[in-house]
Write a protein that binds this DNA or RNA. Sequence first.
DNA 1: CGAGGCCTTGAACCGGTTCAATCCTGGTGG
DNA 2: CCACCAGGATTGAACCGGTTCAAGGCCTCG
Lengths: 246, 246
Amino acid sequence: MTDEVLGGVTSSLLTKLRRSDRITEEEADSLDRAISDVESYAPRSIICRAHVDQDVSKLLVEGFVSRQCTLVDGRRQILAIHVPGDFVDLHAFVLKYLDHDVVALSPAKLAIAPHQALRKVTDEEPHLARMLWFSTAVDAAIHREWIASLGRSAMARVAHLFCELRARLEVVGLADRSGYALPLTQVDLADATSLTPVHVNRTLRQMREAGLLDFRSGRVEIGDLVGLIRIAAFDPRYLYFDRIAR
Amino acid sequence: MTDEVLGGVTSSLLTKLRRSDRITEEEADSLDRAISDVESYAPRSIICRAHVDQDVSKLLVEGFVSRQCTLVDGRRQILAIHVPGDFVDLHAFVLKYLDHDVVALSPAKLAIAPHQALRKVTDEEPHLARMLWFSTAVDAAIHREWIASLGRSAMARVAHLFCELRARLEVVGLADRSGYALPLTQVDLADATSLTPVHVNRTLRQMREAGLLDFRSGRVEIGDLVGLIRIAAFDPRYLYFDRIAR
DNA sequence: CGAGGCCTTGAACCGGTTCAATCCTGGTGG
DNA sequence: CCACCAGGATTGAACCGGTTCAAGGCCTCG
């Protein structure tokens, strides 16, 4: 990565990884050099298509993207929502193809990491390789938490999603205790929680009336974070922001 | 791994990984040497407890185990079911601790891989490291498929679980088209599908009456695999049994 | 023969869905 | 400048898949 335009595209990822473990400047530079380009995507455009062989992986720099698949009845299921700093389809580095689509939920910028470059870097820097492996393992932990979340009430599911996004956005400086920008529609929330848009709407109204949270025009305004966390039964340890040893 | 008793504990894992990529004899031997011991667990005994630092990971050799957590209301949620050949808590190698419990569903034998030994082996053999990374990425893919499955009807969920277990067991020689041994209770199935035991029972009856499948006394007898796959909308590509290049 | 797990079934209930109509808002073209 | 339009948000009312509660039944094992 030498181009001026690419400056600092890995910084959010590094910030996040450094919450868990030390990363040397040399390692950070190596990772930076694995980035070949940055691409922009319009909302709803497909970033990576399921079952197509990949020779690059993409790191989300700006905006929101989802992993999603289309069910037999045509409904869309959102499997994960990614925020800046997430190495969205790093899974494809070891899997070769993905089992789902990656789609932009908002305007988004992604940095491109060719697998050839990633392979060189991970072969030469085993600790950095473990950190990247770590970040895909955290993705898996988030998936598991979603599975548990889906077993619960509509209110708990929606609250859990808001808590998770807040915690993940806070690490990269895009949220605080009072709220955050979230350019999604109620339909997006419905597809992410396996609820109907109608019921998401009613649930959001309940949350607003209870003073917990107000989600309106692309922004989450949190009224009572403690109450929200309680309803969601949100325990952030699954995000692994607190590992220590190298 | 020199002890006679440990002979071949990695063979199911290798069989599975070799469905996706070549693994040399030297790599296989290295992996074998990372195993220090084999332990037996009784049904319901805890194999790995959530939020406790781990210095070993465990490979399932025999029996069935689940990843599970306990929800706030005391209900148990099964997050994944593992079959022989699965490196169950390999995630702990990079995460250091797990966010959920690993519990034996049946009598089970697990091979112990100290993290120190895994670290040596993965530092020395980058390709083997990528294969282990690959296996955790497949775990994540399975989690995603469960998320999608939970968005569907009770019948589809249960059918999907049976299809997935059949496909995964077949790879390690423990299932064929006609059925397989599955020493779980209806309560286990309920906790894995986020249904009530009562409704699982009714769903199983429907499946039996439709000639799709008979689950009884620890064995799944498949009457109509094609029909089952259709109802489950089961597409096995997410299991990644078909990768090619090294 | 008794006890404890597990499976089975019925009946009432309820959280979330479905269908349909209306409202609101920001952007566009006449 | 305003009428129009499209996408998203909102609300009401009927409906239904799955839950809940409760009662038995059927094994296996001591």
